[in-house]
Design a protein around this nucleic acid. Structure first.
Lengths: 247, 247
DNA sequence: CTTGGCTCATTTGTATACAATGGCGCGATT
DNA sequence: AATCGCGCCATTGTATACAAATGAGCCAAG
């Protein structure tokens, strides 16, 4: 792994974990000292982080950390839902290739197996996230629209695996979420196969928006008022005590 | 202007103008020789270009130029239309702030003035593009969703000002496009003010997709078959002889 | 003749020295 | 006392030397 990759990954997780106060200035040199590398890879990493909007860079005056609020994550997920919905619509319109269909059906099968035995073990959560990701990725890439694919990938810097948090906070909610998730996946595929683009888009958008409902559910568990949207995301996550949940 | 900015801008326009064959390898050193700067700014510029998908970079093996096809531009505009539609829907749902409303109405007025006296002069095309951009930008930023704003901005590296080409190729089409464009802008604003999110989204998406219709119109003018989608974009543009139309 | 590995050239990855830029504080002047 | 301007300092921007990695070509062995 190159130094630049290491620096980027490390800074990213530190930023998402809230290890820097929002507004803290990050000079290139300070990052060098912190991580023990030279300025060149640090510079490249900061450029990428700025492109992902995790830090803001002003010309000649370095970078400042941009705190991630719940609202930021919410907004990113709104956009993701819109884009994934559009992907489903495109696929329904253009038809589903044999290879993509294979992948989707396999992921439906895997997801179905999971839905029959919901647990809250780490291994289950891992497999669930994987199966879910396979479905979403397959759908998006089946659209054959590279701008779409890249736009969604760019959003992925934001923590989107809300499910782990939701699951850990409420078992009943978890069971219900997995099972309705399965049903929704099936519904999207059915709409695509029948060539109903509008249904596919709406169903997929609604499904993707579940992450938002998950956030709102956590808000309920934590008994927070509407001001929770302005909270630093890492505090919000910390409230339900799920280590590593920001991945 | 910093060297990095210069290098980026220069390479970008060269890439869009098709001055490099698709697949050409771009080593850092070759770009240095070409533009007479050292590797550091070149490196940064190539990173940005890779993020924008104008070149593809494989680890340790440099970059190769990725030809921009009509399809690429088409796909980028599909995504843009989806996102702008979503923005309109969000604004309709959340309401329009006084400041944003001001900007939108001013842009409607400006656009209305233009629509009454369509010409094909450079100055007119410039003012038309500006008024149009003001409307679209104001709408997107009124959504208050920064992920959305940034996603759209990221797409903007793709040539989206198809209008200039369309206009130059067919005066009647130009007049009709400007006037229906004005009507569509009004329709979107009306839907937003009445709080009809679905109408706002559909109207705005449909409106944004006009760029696609513009591309298709040019295809007709050039009497190209369906294979035109795989054409290098700069050749396609070159066909109607509009210098500087890729901006 | 084919295939395996080894060497070497090419090219990126990293470190560091130096230049330029912009902000901030201090002092002088009104 | 307030303001304007100047100079210093912090920090990024740039150049370049050196290290590391990857792929190609060659040679030898089977």
């Amino acid at each position: 792994m190159s130094q630049e990759t290491t620096v980027h990954a490390k800074l990213r997780s530190m930023l998402l974990d809230g290890e820097f106060e929002a507004g803290t200035r990050l000079t290139e040199q300070s990052v060098c000292d912190l991580l023990g590398v030279s300025r060149t890879p640090v510079r490249a990493a900061l450029l990428r982080l700025a492109a992902q909007n995790l830090v803001t860079g002003q010309s000649n005056r370095g970078y400042t950390v941009r705190g991630i609020t719940v609202d930021d994550v919410w907004n990113a997920n709104v956009v993701r839902a819109v884009l994934e919905g559009a992907a489903a619509g495109i696929v329904a319109r253009n038809g589903l290739g044999a290879a993509a269909r294979e992948v989707l059906e396999q992921s439906l099968a895997d997801y179905g197996d999971l839905a029959r035995h919901v647990e809250l073990s780490d291994s289950f959560l891992e497999r669930h996230a994987a199966a879910n990701r396979v479905f979403h990725d397959a759908l998006v890439s089946a659209s054959g629209n590279e701008s779409l694919t890249r736009s969604i990938d760019t959003l992925a810097y934001m923590p989107v695996q809300i499910n782990r948090i939701v699951f850990a906070s409420d078992r009943d909610f978890a069971v219900q979420t997995v099972q309705s998730g399965l049903a929704e996946h099936h519904g999207v595929v059915a709409a695509i196969l029948s060539g109903d683009a509008m249904a596919a888009e709406i169903l997929m958008r609604t499904h993707s928006q579940k992450a938002l409902r998950g956030i709102d559910h956590v808000r309920g568990v934590l008994k927070l008022g509407p001001e929770f949207r302005q909270m630093p995301f890492h505090e919000f996550i910390g409230g339900v005590g799920v280590p590593g949940a920001t991945g």
